[in-house]
Design a protein around this nucleic acid. Structure first.
Lengths: 196, 196, 196, 196
DNA sequence: TATGAATGAGCGTTCATTCAT
DNA sequence: TATGAATGAACGCTCATTCAT
C-alpha cells in the first residue's frame, strides 16, 4: 500500500471515529505513520482530505450495491439485495465505515465542507433505490407507492439501523435482518390487503 | 424570558445548526445578546451547556410524546400518535430541533461529552415505543414482532425521515405522512397475510 | 468576629497557601463564608486586600518581637529572644503565616503590588535586629561586626529556616533551635578566639 | 544559539523577573523573538517550560558547585568554596538567576507545578553540603554538629543572602563575603571554645 | 451592609497551514 | 517525495471588577 493510500485509510478511520473537527491532521498522519507534512502534500487542505476520504468509501459501497442489484430479479428482491449488501458492507468496515455517516447529506455538514458536492455524490444511493421501487411497482412485486418518498424512507430505514448498530448502546440481536423484514412487509404487494 | 433561558435557546439554535465544535461560546452569547462570560456563569463549561441544551429539548419532546400516547387507543394507534406528535414537534421547532439530532445516542458523540448520560436520557424515547409495541401485540393491533428490534427500527424510521427533511436537499412532498403509513403497513396485524 | 475580620483571616490563608495570582477573590469569600461582593466592599481591589492581609500579619509579629526584645538583657540575648519569638509565632500561625513569606521584600513582589510600601513596612524587622546588634557590640556580648550586614544575615537566617520548615520536604528534627545556636555561635564575643 | 535555546533563556528571564503566573507565554516568545506557537512546539505546556527553565539553571549551578568542591581541601574549606562559587554564579547571572529562587523547594510552588520533581532536583544542593559537613567533622575542621540541620541552615543562609541582594532594597556593601564569614565562624572547630 | 448578575480583558492552548530543506 | 520548524488565528475559560438591588 502506498503512503497516499495509507493516509486515506487513516483519514477514514480518524474522521469516522472523531469527526471532522476533533480529528486532527497530525492524528491522521500518526495513524498512517507518515509526517504530517505529507498529508497536505497529497491531499491539500483538511476539507479536501475529508471529502476524499468520504468519497472513496462511498465509491466502494456504490460498487457493492451496483453488483447486488444488477441481477434480473424483481424490484422487491432488488431492494432486499441492496439492503443486504449495504449492511454487509458496514459490518465488513466497522472501523472506517462511520466516515460515511459523517460525510453524508443525511448528516449535518461541517461548516466549510461543500454540501452540494456531497449531496450530488450521494444522490446515486437514492437513485438506485428509486429505480428498484419503480421497477417493483411495474413488475407487481411492490404495491403502488410514491417512488421518491418510498426510496427516501427506505434509505432512512437503512441508515437508521446502521446508526443504531454502530453508535448506540441499545444493542439488538439482529437489527439488520429485522430491518429488511420491516421494509419487505411494508412494500410487498398483497392484492387482497388494503392500505391503512 | 430570563437571560439564562435566552442562552439556552441560543445554544440549541447554534449547536443545532453548527454542531458542538463549530458553534462557539461567543456565538451562543451573541445570539442570546449577552456577554460570553454569562454563559460560563450560568452553565459552566461548553460541554455542560451542550448537554443542558439537548436535555431541555428532549424534556419538551418527551412531554409531548407522553401526552400523545396517554389515550386509551390500541398499540398501533399509539404508535401513530407518537409519530405524529414527533413530526409535529420537529416542524414547530425547525430552528432549534436539530440539537436533538446532535445530542443523541444515534449520533456520534463529540469526544468529551458524556455519552452514557445522553444514552440514559434518550432511553425513554425507545422505552415508550417498546410499551406501545408490546401493548399492540397484546391487543392484537400489531403482528407478532420482536419488541426491542421493532421499537429501535421505528425510532430509526422517525429519525431517518427527520434527517431527510431537515438536513438533505432531497425534498419530498410529505415524507412524514408517508413514513407513518410505511410503519403502519409494516406493523399492522392482518390475519390473512403471512410474513415474508 | 466581624465579617470584615473573617475576610482578612481568609485572605491570609488563601494568599499564603496559593499566592497572589492563584488565590481568587471568590476563594477568599468562600473561606470567609461571605459573598464575593463584600470583599470589594470592605477592601477595594485584590491588591489592596493582599497588602491589608500581609500588613495585619506583620503588625502582629512586630508586636511579639517588640515584647520579646523589650527586656534589659544584653544584645546577644535580645537576639536570641527575637529569634525565639519569631519561630514561636510561625509555629502558632502555620496556616496563615505564609502570607508574610509572600508579602515581603525578601520575596518577589507580584507586579502591581507597591513594593516600596512593603519594604517600608518590613524595615522595622531589620531595624530591630540592628539595634540588638549595636547594643550587643556595645555591651560586649557580640563581637565586632558590621551592624547592617549582620542584621540582614540574621534575618536571612531566620527566614531561611522558616522556609525550610514550612515549604520544603527536607524535614528536620529541630531546625529552629539549631538555627538559634548557629547564630549565637557566630555572634558571640569570645575574647580568646580570633576571626577567620 | 538555536531558537529552542533562545526560548529557554527568555523563559528564565521572564519567570525570574515576573514569576510563573505574571510571566506570560507570549511574553517569553516576545523576548526570544519567536512566535508563541513555537514555545508549545518545543516545550509543551507553560508548566513544562517553567521546569525546563529552572532545571537548566540548576544544572549549570550544580556543575559549578561540583567543580568548586572537588579539590582535596578540608570540609570547612569545601563549604567556603561552595558558598563562594554559589555567590559568584548569582552575580554572573543576575538577569536569569532568579528563576532558581522561584523554581525551588524553598519557595512556594505554584499550584500545578510538580513540587516533588523540584524537590528531587534540588536535593543535590543539600546533599553536597551534607557531605562537606560530614567530611569537616571527620577531618576536625568543623565542630560536632548535626549534619542534616547544619546543611539546611547553611543553604538557608546562602539563599537568604541571595534574596537580600537580588530582591530587597536593603542594600549592603558586601553581604556575600560577610555571609561566608558568618558561616565559617559558626562552624569552625575551636577546641578551646565551648558551645553556647 | 450584603448579594450575585453581568461584563470583557487577557490567559494558555490547539492546530491547520506554509515553506525551507 | 518527505520532513518538521515556524506561524498566528481562534478557541474555551478564568476572574477581577462594577453595579443594580
Amino acid at each position: 500500500m502506498t503512503k497516499k493510500e495509507m493516509i486515506l485509510k487513516a483519514a477514514q478511520e480518524a474522521f469516522g471515529q472523531l469527526g471532522f473537527h476533533a480529528a486532527t491532521v497530525k492524528d491522521v498522519a500518526g495513524r498512517a505513520d507518515v509526517s504530517f507534512g505529507l498529508v497536505s502534500h497529497y491531499f491539500g487542505s483538511k476539507q479536501d482530505l475529508f471529502l476524499a476520504a468520504g468519497f472513496d468509501m462511498a465509491d466502494h459501497l456504490v460498487a457493492k450495491l451496483t453488483e447486488a442489484t444488477d441481477g434480473d430479479q424483481n424490484g422487491l428482491e432488488s431492494i432486499r439485495q441492496y439492503m443486504t449488501a449495504y449492511f454487509k458492507f458496514t459490518d465488513e468496515h466497522r472501523n472506517r465505515f462511520p466516515i460515511l455517516l459523517r460525510c453524508s447529506p443525511f448528516s449535518h455538514m461541517e461548516p466549510g465542507i461543500d454540501a452540494a458536492k456531497v449531496a450530488e455524490k450521494f444522490s446515486v444511493f437514492i437513485d438506485k433505490l428509486k429505480s428498484c421501487v419503480s421497477q417493483g411497482i411495474e413488475d407487481g412485486s411492490i404495491r403502488e407507492l410514491p417512488t421518491n418518498e418510498t426510496a427516501l424512507i427506505i434509505y432512512g430505514n437503512i441508515v437508521g439501523s446502521v446508526r443504531t448498530s454502530l453508535l448506540t448502546p441499545y444493542k439488538s440481536e439482529d437489527i439488520f435482518m429485522e430491518t429488511i423484514k420491516h421494509v419487505m412487509r411494508s412494500l410487498k404487494n398483497s392484492p387482497d390487503q388494503e392500505g391503512c
